[in-house]
Amino acid sequence: MTSESLDAFVNNLETYGKIYGPVKTGESCSFQEISQSKEMALNYSRTMIPPKKFFLKLKERMFIFDERECEYEETLEDGKIVVFGIHPCDIYALKLMDKIYLDKNPDKYYQMRRENATLIGYSCHPDEYCFCQSQGTNYAVDGFDLFLHELKDKFLVRIGSEKGNKIASENSKFFMDVESSDIQEFREAEGKREKEFTLKLAINGLTDMLALSYESDVWKEYADKCFGCGSCNLVCPTCRCYDVVDNVNMDLKSGERQRMLNSCMLKKHGLVYGGKNFRPTRVERLRNRFNCKGSLREDMMNCVGCGRCTVYCPSKIDYVEVLRRVRGEL
């Protein structure tokens, strides 16, 4: 696809749902509804809130009920969307979410939104906070419908799903066959990008290092700096803990069950009956977050190296630095 076709192609995407893309908002960037490709800042580094917001709402209603009759009715939102310009790390994060939310007990709310969404990836260049290369998430092999690699005056487009294939064939006028010179250009661009990564984290054996450093003083040191604000959870594309509350209406008989994103950095996350807390202080909570992120579960690391938690931590706690301390490198 040529660079000039981008506008027209994006316009056509309307057929597949409301289009969301990275838009500059003040200092940072955010996925917002757009009508034209011009509105997007496609050379963005990272959005503050990751695309998980399309699938797991900050707050969402699960069902409404009538208390007296114990009757309830599920509430689901529909609506097709196209998320344009998603980066490889965020694609990997959604793959991880899929493993959690679409397992043998699939989450219907998540599943419906996921089925209603088209994901269009877009190539990126790392800044000083990106370490996806170390995490092995810098190149999306699958998990998208289409992926656009920006070359000099064109895009190399990869098709990642049947849905993507359908979009490509319905918009075939924008697409040209791949020439061997395109492949050469793509290869060079990717090779150059691989060399752009400056931040590295050795992840081999990290899981065991974390286990062995469970009693390390490093946790206390960083916990003393941490405000316990939970921003790191909010911006992390793989954090998905949620809490559930019932809200009762003014009539005191009807209401809704709602779930909302939760944070393991908050005290109540480990609280159980009788005031017992399994993670009573910030030390346990911070350590738990790093152990969770640095663990292998569902065959994937729980961190995709997007750098958000470092960038948005008000106390400047640097994710990679903490882990390098744990490894004894610093």
Partner: peptide, 23 residues
């Protein structure tokens, strides 16, 4: 074991325990 639980089916994350090698 008992832990704080919200979903019971591995979604809400509240009951996660363990370290890097044993979540």
């Amino acid at each position: 074991l008992e832990r704080r639980m919200r979903c019971g089916i591995g979604k809400c994350g509240n009951c996660i325990i363990g370290d890097g090698s044993s979540i």
